[in-house]
Write a protein that binds this DNA or RNA. Structure first.
Lengths: 105, 105
DNA sequence: CTCCTCACTTTGTTATGCATAGTATAGCTT
DNA sequence: AAGCTATACTATGCATAACAAAGTGAGGAG
């Protein structure tokens, strides 16, 4: 997928994963792998940003003697995803515009 | 629309317009206005980039005593749009992934 | 004790949209 | 002729963003 387009989906994919329950970095990457690839150096900065924006909250937890940062979706973050989904019709319209232009040729 | 997502569509919208025939900056903006808003300070740099990448070619022409830069879509640029359209299924899959996550909650 | 997986951090580079402002011509109105 | 609007392109500078690459440290398997 075009890298530029991909950027538009990244953060919403992360928020969607958290909708299913609190999770942490490494797990999120694995959960997303099937739908969208994301290296650690991309995920963690986005999580930090989302936290600063109040779309997720963060709490540490111990698992197997290892520390994990669990992220939790807030109401703000949830509302964000809802808004995002509503944009899909606009996206479809753009695809249709491009497709029609191509057929015309 | 989320600005980040919008970025992913801009250049393909421009290429699509040129598919219908050679055009120039000001006209392209007007043609796109209905589907996607784009200020001049966004369009012209993109056109320059597309030219450097060989996706469009450029030739000057006089119209009403005014000089115009006409842009022409190349085969490379055309192939690009075709590729882009084929990514739509992937985009749909992402939307479905997010939608399912939201419903699950 | 070495290698692999897990889990997160840090640094630095590159790309990109766009607000803002500026330049310049044509044509219409008053 | 002065002023306004539309046309057409240019230039500067800022903010955002993804990601490669490398490093840190813990735990478990062989």
């Amino acid at each position: 997928m075009s890298p530029q387009l991909k950027k538009g989906f990244l953060e919403y994919c992360i928020l969607a994963v958290l909708e299913r329950g609190d999770s942490y970095g490494y797990q999120i990457i694995k959960d997303l792998a099937a739908v969208i690839a994301m290296p650690e150096s991309t995920l963690y900065p986005i999580l930090k940003r989302l936290e600063k924006q109040g779309k997720v909250t963060c709490h540490n937890e111990l698992a197997d003697g290892r520390n994990r940062k669990y992220y939790h979706l807030t109401a703000t973050g949830q509302a964000d995803v809802v808004d995002f989904l509503q944009e899909q019709t606009e996206v479809e319209r753009i695809y249709q515009f491009i497709r029609e232009a191509m057929e015309h040729a």
